[in-house]
Each structure stands twice: as C-alpha cells, then as structure tokens.
Amino acid sequence: MGVRTWIEGWPVYRQLTGTDPLGRGAASQSARSKNLTARTETADSMARSVCPYCAVGCGQRIFVKDGEVVQIEGDPDSPISKGRLCPKGSASKSLVTSDRRQKKVLYRRPYGTDWEELDLETAMDMIADRVLAAREETWEDRDEDGRPLNRTLGISSLGGATLDNEENYLIKKLFTAMGAIQIENQARI
C-alpha cells in the first residue's frame, strides 16, 4: 500500500484536510465500516417459510449462504405477521443451527447404561422388524362376538403438533393400514 494512500487513510490526516476536523464521523470511519452490508443481501437463496413454534403462523424468510442457514427473520409480506416475530420465532436460527442438535442416530441397548452410535439404515431395519414382531404378537382379528377388529394394541405413537400435514397424512395412512390404532397427538394434551 503506497505511503500516499496510507497517509490518506490516516484519520488525523483526514481530520486536517477533510470536512470532519473533530474526527467524530467521516474522518474516522474505517474501510470495514464503509463496506458493511447485510448478510441477507449477499445470501445465495431465500426460502419462504413459516415459524415452527405457535399456531399464529408467522411468515419467515430463511436466508442461506454456502448451504448454511445464515438468517431467519420475519416475512414482511405475510398478512398475518407483517414481518414480525416473537422471541421464540426470532430464535429460529439458533434452533436450526444449534450445535446441541442431535445429528447421529443413537441406540440404547436393553439394560444399557449409555448411548451407542448406530447406522441409519440398520436402525430403520431394526425398527421395521420390531414393528412387525410387536404387531404379530398382539394382533386381534375379531372381538369376542366375532366382529372384525383388524388391529394391534401393541404399538403406540405420540406426535407433536409441529408435524406437517403431509407427514401426518403418511403416518395416519401407514399406521391405519398396519392396524395400529393407538396413535395420538399433542392436540389432545
């Protein structure tokens, strides 16, 4: 960097030669401050989403840069929320990018005292086997008067109310076809 530009970069010089003799504004602004820009403007993409917390359904904009969520804020277009969010909705970025989020399948064997890691596909196979086993063990074809029951009471499920409608649909469809009627949801708690 030439001496000249270095001198011109020196705020004292700018105080003496510029419009800010007291050095309280333009003279002392650093290059970094001058080039500041909001990371939402330099994001690769923005997804239109909805807050996962309560049922007001505030609109959210999720900004992504290099495959990472860099900001989640309110969607000013939403007629429900007009770009606003509550403390929980505002904490959505922390929720999604928290390092406390579990990212590995964990398995606790019967009588085990700690978690073990398990491969995703293996876990899915083990769960499928257990579902069929439990179903077989507790299947009820008919009641005592011969009326069809066509069900198992050996499997239970309790869903949160932050599941998508599409997910709820597949869950209900699969469990019903499997005869597992004991599925419940936070709507009742």
Binding site: L36, T37, A38, T40, E41, E73, G74, P76, G83, R84, L85, C86, G89, S90
Partner: peptide, 13 residues
C-alpha cells in the same frame, strides 16, 4: 445501509 429495518424494530410484534 442496505435500506432494511433494524432487526429489533422488524421483530417487535
């Protein structure tokens, strides 16, 4: 600087 609203003002319900 980019014409946006400060984060707190935008969030305030």
């Amino acid at each position: 600087g980019d014409g946006l609203t400060p984060a707190c003002a935008q969030a305030c319900p």
